[in-house]
Amino acid sequence: MKIKREELAQKIGEMKASGYSYLVKITAVDYVDHLTALYFLRDIDKNREETLEIDLAPTDLWLPTIIKAHTSADWYEREMSEMFDIKIKGRKAPRLLLERWDGTEGPLRKGFAWGEDYKSM
């Protein structure tokens, strides 16, 4: 389901109320011309799943946090933020989770500059 990032918090809240109470994963894909953030949600009782997709322009990368609705979003948001250099608004910026650089390289972005040691096929 494609949504806009402004309605994310509200949508997550609605879905949680309607049974989608389990957050499976948050991740993103870099399609070069745009990025897509993905929120996998699951309704365990009724055994159904839903994916929320949010398209982001590479020049304007930020997302609202959903940590209030799902505590498990904490690390997923931090991971995605580091890996794609997406700012998460609405929560305090903790230290870096996985990276040891300054967190703005976005290693999983397609434009990431590989080091000299790595040879792509």
Partner: peptide, 15 residues
């Protein structure tokens, strides 16, 4: 793969 995202069970269990 253009993008492979792995949902690791240990990651979220550690959190």
């Amino acid at each position: 793969p253009y993008r492979l995202s792995i949902r690791s069970p240990n990651f979220i269990n550690l959190m």
